[in-house]
């Protein structure tokens, strides 16, 4: 629902100073993200509050799944 709409399963994204800014920039670049629910992970740690970024981190967008 998310991966198939992004240009690539993995891609580089311009540097943002923290996770809030990153989310904003992602929403701007890919407006459909605003209508989707997902959590962010920075270097395999779930983002639960604003997290500063250095620029080299691996970011993952994690949508919830409901299927069973």
């Amino acid at each position: 629902m998310l991966a198939e709409k992004l240009p690539q399963p993995k891609f580089e994204f311009p540097y943002q100073k923290d996770s809030d800014e990153l989310l904003k920039a992602l929403n701007q670049e890919y407006p459909f993200l605003e209508d989707l629910k997902f959590s962010l992970a920075v270097d395999k740690q779930l983002v639960q509050e604003k997290t500063p970024l250095k620029g080299s981190e691996e970011i993952a967008l994690l949508p919830p799944f409901s299927g069973g």
Partner: peptide, 8 residues
Amino acid sequence: GAIYQYEG
């Protein structure tokens, strides 16, 4: 546990 298409 949960799934969506090709992911779990």
